[in-house]
Nucleic acid binder design. Sequence first.
DNA 1: TTGCTCACG
DNA 2: ACGTACGTGAGCAAG
Length: 887
Amino acid sequence: MEKLILIDGNSIIYRAFFAMPPLNNSSGLHTNAVYGFTNMLLRLIQDEKPSHIMVAFDAGKVTFRHEGYEDYKGGREKTPSELTEQFPLTRELLDSFGICWFEQPGYEADDIIGTVSKQAEEAGKEVLVVTGDKDMLQVVSDKVKVALTRKGISEVEPYGPQEIKERYGLIPEQIIDLKGLMGDASDNIPGVPGIGEKTALKLLHQFGSVEEVLARTDELKGKMKENLVQHAEDARLSKRLATIHREVPIDRSFDDMIFRGLKEEKAAPMLRKLEFKSLLERLAFGEGTEASEAADGSVELEEVDVTVVDDTTLTELVKQLPKIEVMYVESHGDNPHQAEVMGLILSTEEQHFFVSNEFLLSEAAKPIREWLADPQHPKAGYDLHRADLALYWQEISFAGAEHDIQLAAYLLDPTDNNQTISGLAAKYKLPSVPSDDEVYGKGAKFKIPDQETLSRHLARKGLAMLRLIPLQKEELKKNEMNRLFYELEMPLSRILADMEKQGIAVNREALAELGREFEAQIEKLETRIYELAGLEFNLNSPKQLGEVLFDKLELPVVKKTKTGYSTDAEVLDKLAPYHEIVQFILEYRQLAKLKSTYVEGLLKEIRPDTGKVHTYYRQTIAATGRLSSQFPNLQNIPIRLEEGRKIRQVFVPSEEGWHILAADYSQIELRVLAHISDDKGLQEAFLHDMDIHTKTAMDVFGVTQDQVDANMRRSAKAVNFGIVYGISDYGLSQNLHITRKEAAHFIEQYFEAFQGVRRYMDEIVQEAKRDGYVTTLLERRRYLPEINASNFNLRSFAERTAMNTPIQGTAADIIKLAMVMMDEVMRKHGLKSRMLLQVHDELVFEVPPEELETMNKLVPETMEKALKLSVPLKAEVSSGINWYEAK
DNA sequence: TTGCTCACG
DNA sequence: ACGTACGTGAGCAAG
């Protein structure tokens, strides 16, 4: 069937402008909105494959709507000139793409789209309308879908009649009634005072239309009735204003809207003028790329040769083994401890060798396994950490990792969200590598392909890796990251794998018993809650819980989420005085979390063969340089509340009579801040090893140590947290439940007392604006492209990130250094103790009794000398028969 | 798959 | 136009 895409040009460009960071070409032309628009357009073309496209624009300032209502769209901010200049550019771009656009004085883009969609529907075409304006939902029908933009313009959410029904409980035509009642501040449409979306929907569900509501106000009561009677005319007017006019005179035919694909000779010069290099690349209009891509996005791939290793070709490989430059183990499954190895590729400049897992495990492949296990054979490849683990569980050793492409890519840009070989190949403009999803299918569709397809895919990866390595080496050097990469992250990668293979023992019976205790309490709470509510419902459903609390029990609504009432702990705390049910719900939540996540979740992760849990530390996820932990996450085991803290009792030594030893850094982030800000007061406090929150309270409130009460210390502690996070008065006010003004006052007092910190915060933001990135003490780098955004939120977020990342990231650098040093020192002393876990500022070991004394000294000493700062680092150690007791 | 909630540093 | 403290992962409900 023919498919027509109708785009509200004004709406999309407007949104793109605010969603995208500023961008201009070398002649100073602002291009961010055009860029966002073009990106979306190309994505739509690729995904929807339309036969027809038209883009509608608003023309002129005054429309027929102003005739009935002069204030229509009154009170709007003037459009910034940076945006205005991008409208003609967009039209020019559409011309160069051969895409039809249209505007009609006196009408808005809405009306044009309404008219064309109606005509198209009548002509039997399928229509997709793309806009950011919810009003448009009124034109939805079986044939016409409306895609609303979300999160700026990066995503769209398609609405058909069904989706509108689900979201609002209305038919599309009723959208105008909704608007009539609630109005629209952005268009200065008044609506009825006191009626928002919630009430409007309730009324429409009862009466069906604005007219019907107004005719039957006698069935209503109270303030709402008064408002409806008094503002009846406003409601009628608002409904008229919101109604899309579907009979606009339009001098374009469907034939004008036919889309025939991009023509390089027309589109490319325009894209070059705008300097949209990435789009030119994507469309393969430029030259120099070895793979050619057609305008519809399909890619023609280069051929690769690959030698499948079997009994006859093995000798050929064995001869080449010393010359292998890159390797890659393909495995399937998220958890590398349970991943299924699909095959191995070993590449030289001349040749790619594919080794199936079956062959790798066979007797004949012994030389390959020996090569993998030999640390004297240095290896480069992609995600060697995962390879190590996947091979380990099928009893193949791995050693000698020297350059991990994934890890290098992470250091070069930790926030790059496509650190796959395929993504990196595209980023560096190498011959393209199809994505794994394309080759294997994703989700339920995943399938291991035939050997030829698999080996060819892996050979392409091999080729890309060969090319990537020298490029990365050069960039690492340029960024002064050689030490960080070769002396910290690469060695750490092997240490993490060792810790993960070791795992930590879990007392299954004790855990199950805890689960039974939680369950008994949960059952009691459930009974009590259902009694108080007067009905049984799914307590785990925020939606149902919201209905019980706010509709049935009519508790005051404190906060809303996108989809309904918020019922989070903060809200429940506020509701506690109103109804005793609330306290029980809070307790239920706490215990339900413990049972499902920490008892049942953990039980599932215990490996039957080892009786341990083997977490997987991901070294390439966190933007700040921290590790993350999965399957299970052992970095968020409860500690703050006693009930949850008990979970730690089940983490035990794996050998009889051994001890669990835990050591954590004291105030590492504030110590790092004292160092990098060079704030004398803060440094002084740590040199004397003072209680930092008390010291902060003294300076902020201008009192002596004796005068600091618990409340002052608590506030000071919150301020210290805030400082580390990149403080905002709003954030602090939320945390301390004080007004924004009071929070701002606190912050000002803090900065008066710690002027070095103020200077640091100012300078780091300036640095980020100048360089586009911030760094840690070890030159770990994080780019902040939104630091110069005109959008306040985006910019503010980037500014707070600029303040926080060097602090959090340097702390991460330090504990990573400590881990590498600990590993080395334990080897040197020939200790049997084992490092098991890292929890951001804490290291956990299991220690035989005869080494306890040694480790009690060695661990904190090593941690404290990991990096020399202008203030001492302090680590506190403790041990016990399980993790709980090591406190 | 997305959104909510909540566990940790 | 839009909503916030920084950084994560997991379980559950519901689309």
